[in-house]
Amino acid sequence: MDSDPFYYDIIMAGFGGQGVLVIGNLLAYAAMMEGKHVTYLPVYGVEMRGGTANCTVVISSRQIGSPVVGSPHAAIVMNLPSLIKYEPLVLPEGLLFINSTLIEPKETYRKDIEILSIPVNEIAIDNGNPKLANMVALGAFNGKTKLVQMSSLFGSLEKVLDQRYHHLIPSNIKAIQLGAEFVRKMT
């Protein structure tokens, strides 16, 4: 048994196509590279682009029992339907990360959790590639929680992304960095 047991779980949700499964995968991979136990559970379905997608990532210093999480320590919500579904589930004193480009922060109601609002689409558009909003979110979330080293996230890109996207790794790294930087400037 670990002397310093660590356990953290996150639900990430958004429209299909927003890339929440990819960032869940990256976070799990990065944590695994750092020697943690991890599970990554996508909720798959008949949904396609435009439908809803979510995944649960568990990171622990010990063997993980359930990959299914009822009340997560953190939720990353990329759109309004995801906010409505997951805000009530976050553990008290947990973290709710909202994409404030698509969700008005005033839509939230919880007072017992920390709410982090980041306009991830705007940041991605300003950077010239709106598709990388998910990477901005991942960078900002990890900048806030410091769950893994940034270098581990960068290293996991070539493992998680298909070979045909490897030429895009530098732009993905930049988007992750922008997210992290945005959070750093907030505090």
Binding site: V38, T39, Y40, L41, P42, I64, P67
Partner: peptide, 8 residues
């Protein structure tokens, strides 16, 4: 659940 889940 076990088929779609990723683990080390």
């Amino acid at each position: 659940l076990i088929g779609q889940m990723k683990e080390p």
